[in-house]
């Protein structure tokens, strides 16, 4: 099944059938705000030398994962790249455990042995956090294979960036998923730059979603800065996949405000371009305005929420700084499962 290339999907008008309730909207807003404040704090801790190595922030892209998680059910699985903190929080993982992994402490999700790019929670259906660009795509396809094999009704959401979308294994995956009608939603978070190389300089065709068509994969393109649009498209995609019709490829056009990683000065784009996105397309500001228009939350409500989120993030940062480093014995654990 292939959908014709159409206009980029925008969100449903308030009051339409598929529109979320005000309570749901408040929850999405809160989820996005948590990711942003968490990432800002992570950036701060990195600057203080408390987080080491690579650290890729999700700021600006929050609507994509929050909008799609709104479409998932318990039992579904998620897999993504190394820009993964937002996905973990959206899956319901504890901010303390995520932040403590960033600081390499024993209380982190991987007991300090994975770091920013390698965290997992079977309990929350989050299967990483993968450091090799594109490697998560066949893995997500395999999670979908397992859903189908077991007949558990679940699906996998496999996220990747526009950079990963040029890896050969992505197309090997699209081909197999389509051949075998696997329940998988491939999400390309097109934030316009694979590290410092723009999509125009890396992709012969910039209509990324269209690359699903040769594999008979249903394709969608969505405004990834608009939570309502992402959610709407996600609902359609998930319904299609759960009906057993096969995989869907969704391109979410989004933007990252920070550099590729903490050490990237992002000189490949102009300040004006960044400023325009922040002012005109910020996903959190956008949803905040919707909540105001709907009178779903008043000033006090926003203030209370801001404080709540801030407290969660500060508690996570404190936890991450005060937790002990892994015991030296951890060096030798988790290499092989005792048979």
């Amino acid at each position: 099944m292939t959908t014709k290339k159409g206009p980029i999907k925008k969100g449903p008008a308030a009051g339409s059938n598929s529109a979320p309730t005000p309570d749901e909207l408040i929850k999405y807003y809160k989820d996005m705000l948590l990711i942003r404040r968490f990432e800002e704090r992570a950036g701060q801790l990195y600057g203080m030398g408390l987080i080491g190595g690579f650290c890729h922030l999700y700021i600006g892209q929050e609507a994509v994962v929050v909008g799609l998680q709104a479409c998932s059910k318990p039992g579904d699985t998620v897999v993504t790249s190394y820009r993964d903190h937002g996905h973990m929080l959206a899956c319901g993982m504890d901010p303390k455990g995520v932040m403590a992994e960033l600081t390499g402490r024993a209380t982190g999700y991987s007991r300090g042995k994975g770091g920013s790019m390698h965290m997992f929670s079977r309990e929350k259906g989050f299967f990483g956090g993968h450091g090799i660009v594109g490697a998560q795509v066949p893995i997500g396809t395999g999670l979908a294979f397992a859903h189908k094999y077991k007949g558990d009704g679940g699906l996998c959401m496999a996220y990747m960036g526009d950079g990963a979308f040029n890896q050969g294994q992505v197309y090997e995956s699209l081909n197999m998923a389509s051949l075998w009608h696997l329940p998988v939603l491939y999400v390309v978070e097109n934030n316009k730059y694979g590290m410092g190389t723009s999509v125009e300089r890396a992709s012969a065709s910039t209509d990324l979603a269209s690359r699903g068509q040769p594999y008979n994969v249903k394709t969608m393109t969505v405004d990834g800065m608009d939570l309502m649009a992402v959610r709407e498209a996600g609902m359609e995609a998930v319904e299609y996949i759960r009906a057993g019709k096969g995989p869907v490829l969704m391109e979410a056009k989004t933007y990252r405000y920070r550099g590729h990683s903490m050490s990237d000065p992002a000189k490949y784009r102009t300040k004006e371009e960044l400023q325009k996105m922040r002012v005109e397309h910020d996903p959190i500001d956008h949803l905040r305005q919707t909540l105001i228009d709907l009178k779903a939350l008043d000033d006090d409500g926003f203030k209370t929420m801001d404080k709540e989120i801030k407290d969660i993030v500060i508690a996570a940062a404190d936890f991450a700084q005060t937790s002990p480093e892994p015991d030296p014995s951890e060096l030798w654990t988790d290499i092989i499962v005792a048979a």
């Binding site: 982190g108 999700y109 991987s110 007991r111 300090g112 042995k113 994975g114 390698h118 965290m119 997992f120 929670s121 079977r122 299967f127 990483g128 654990t333 988790d334 290499i335 092989i336 499962v337």
Partner: peptide, 8 residues
């Protein structure tokens, strides 16, 4: 397995 602290 190692990177996940034994989960995966």
């Amino acid at each position: 397995l190692y990177m996940s602290g034994g989960q995966m």
